[in-house]
């Protein structure tokens, strides 16, 4: 520090109020520098927080008829919002993307107290078939789209429906078994990197 104090108080007080210290530019210049730096940072922040589009990721892990609907309904609706949507289908969630198997998804009556069957009866052969038929009838009655209609709608609207490679291999599902337009060859790392960029991340 400078030793030319010529009797003036020294220490922090003087340093804080000094705008004539020869080692620093004038206060006005420093304020101007700060202002332009602030403008730069505000512009950076605006660019970082507004990338123009909301992004959503869903991980779909279930393959029963009732659980196939939520990811597809949310994905198609989000696409209608103009959002960028990725649905990562893994384990039984792959059934939704399997063109043939998706037409025959079942509702489980066992362990589902909301079906009209007592659990003791629900375990009998053919009962899943019965409750599934009842649910399909209700779906049809209220005009809810079928699973294949929703998959097609999602793909048409630009949602990225992805089939996890590891579980597809595990279940011996060939790439050709999935709907046209389904993304294959993806895994946990690619899913995570999309989630990191997403505004909304859901697990179904």
């Amino acid at each position: 520090m400078s030793s030319e104090t010529d009797g003036a108080p020294t220490g922090p007080k003087r340093a804080a109020s000094s705008d004539t210290d020869s080692t620093e530019p004038p206060l006005a210049d420093r304020v101007e520098t700060l202002h332009s730096r602030l403008d730069e940072l505000e512009a950076d922040l605006a660019a970082a927080t507004d990338d123009g589009s909301t992004r959503m990721t869903i991980v779909a892990t279930k393959g029963t008829l009732d659980m196939a609907y939520p990811p597809l309904i949310l994905a198609s609706t989000a696409a209608a919002f103009g959002w960028e949507v990725t649905v990562f289908h893994t384990f039984w969630g792959l059934e939704i993307l399997h063109e043939e198997r998706s037409a025959d998804l079942q509702l489980s009556s066992v362990g589902n107290p909301n079906t009209p069957l007592p659990n003791a009866l629900a375990a009998l052969p053919g009962m899943d078939r019965l409750t599934t038929t009842m649910m399909r009838r209700s779906i049809d009655d209220v005009g809810t789209p079928t699973i294949d209609e929703l998959v097609d709608t999602c793909l048409e609207m630009g949602a990225d429906l992805q089939a996890c490679q590891m579980t597809a291999d595990m279940m011996d599902y060939d790439e050709g078994a999935f709907y046209d337009g389904v993304t294959t060859g993806v895994g946990a790392a690619s899913a995570l990197s999309e989630m990191a960029e997403a505004d909304i991340q859901l697990l179904v």
Binding site: A79, G82, G143, T144
Partner: peptide, 14 residues
């Protein structure tokens, strides 16, 4: 008419 969620929104967007 006759369509339920999510189709009215989806078709409106389309």
């Amino acid at each position: 008419k006759g369509l339920s969620c999510p189709m009215p929104v989806v078709k409106t967007k389309q």
